[in-house]
Amino acid sequence: MDTVRLRRLNRWQAEGLREDLADLYVESSAASPGEEFRDRQKFLLRLAGDVQLPGFDMLVAEAQSLTGCAFGVPVPRDGSWWEGFHGPLPQNLEQLTASGHVFAILDTVVHPHQHAHGLARRLQERLLGDHEASLGVTLVDRSDHSTCAALRTWGWQEVGQIHRLPGPTTLQVLVLPLGERTSEHPDGLAHNDRTQRPE
């Protein structure tokens, strides 16, 4: 197997690779032939919006060609990212958000042949590590059972649902605690000086 290299892209580099990223997205999806064009256009539209978000960061995986990518943004400290969350936001998520140590993974795309090699997980962990995040967060369509199941096997935990506009879309919220797990904090979400809400 070819050696897979991970490379960071800024927003301009990501925009320059948009067509290749969209091709990768179509190859990685299980869309029926009639849906491919529409799914590709939706991905390009989402990507165009995402690269404009403050702190946008992307990692791509390359062998002889582009084999995967993961991208995301730091979650703003003001809590605006959590608007539409069903019910009260758990206190530990509120504290970590206020501390500036939460990073949202907006999308992870990996060529189907690479899944067996753990590339999606490697991309996510590297992206979160590069941002020294205490918590990773991602949103998944509730009907996408295979993605939810894969994320849970990597340690992601479901913490609720969130409603995102436009439309009636309700998404599953999953978090990946990156702190040290202790008997006092088995979830890895220790409340220490680094994660306290500023006064």
Rank of each mutant, 00 (worst) to 15 (best):
1 M>L: 09
4 V>D: 02
5 R>H: 09
6 L>F: 09
13 Q>V: 09
13 Q>L: 12
14 A>W: 00
14 A>M: 06
14 A>G: 03
15 E>L: 13
19 E>A: 14
21 L>Q: 09
23 D>N: 10
23 D>E: 15
24 L>S: 00
24 L>W: 02
28 S>I: 02
30 A>G: 15
33 P>W: 05
35 E>G: 02
40 R>C: 06
40 R>L: 03
41 Q>N: 13
44 L>A: 15
46 R>Y: 13
46 R>P: 01
46 R>G: 10
47 L>Q: 06
53 L>F: 06
53 L>K: 13
55 G>Q: 12
60 V>G: 00
60 V>F: 00
63 A>I: 05
64 Q>K: 11
64 Q>S: 14
66 L>R: 07
68 G>S: 02
69 C>L: 10
71 F>E: 06
74 P>A: 02
75 V>D: 04
77 R>T: 11
78 D>N: 14
79 G>V: 06
81 W>G: 01
81 W>F: 15
82 W>A: 07
84 G>D: 03
86 H>V: 13
87 G>N: 11
90 P>C: 03
92 N>F: 06
96 L>P: 00
96 L>H: 14
96 L>T: 08
97 T>D: 03
99 S>L: 06
100 G>A: 04
100 G>C: 03
101 H>E: 14
102 V>C: 04
106 L>N: 14
107 D>S: 08
108 T>C: 12
110 V>Q: 02
110 V>Y: 01
111 H>I: 07
112 P>V: 02
112 P>H: 03
116 A>G: 15
118 G>F: 01
123 L>Y: 04
124 Q>H: 01
126 R>S: 10
126 R>I: 00
127 L>H: 00
128 L>V: 04
129 G>Y: 06
129 G>W: 00
138 T>R: 08
139 L>D: 00
141 D>C: 07
149 A>M: 07
154 W>L: 02
155 G>E: 01
156 W>M: 01
156 W>E: 04
165 L>A: 10
165 L>C: 08
166 P>G: 10
166 P>K: 08
170 T>V: 15
171 L>Y: 04
172 Q>C: 10
174 L>F: 11
175 V>M: 01
176 L>F: 10
176 L>T: 01
177 P>E: 09
178 L>C: 05
182 T>G: 08
184 E>F: 05
184 E>Q: 15
185 H>S: 12
186 P>W: 09
186 P>H: 08
186 P>A: 08
186 P>V: 10
189 L>N: 11
190 A>F: 02
190 A>S: 14
191 H>C: 15
193 D>W: 09
194 R>N: 10
198 P>A: 07
198 P>I: 00
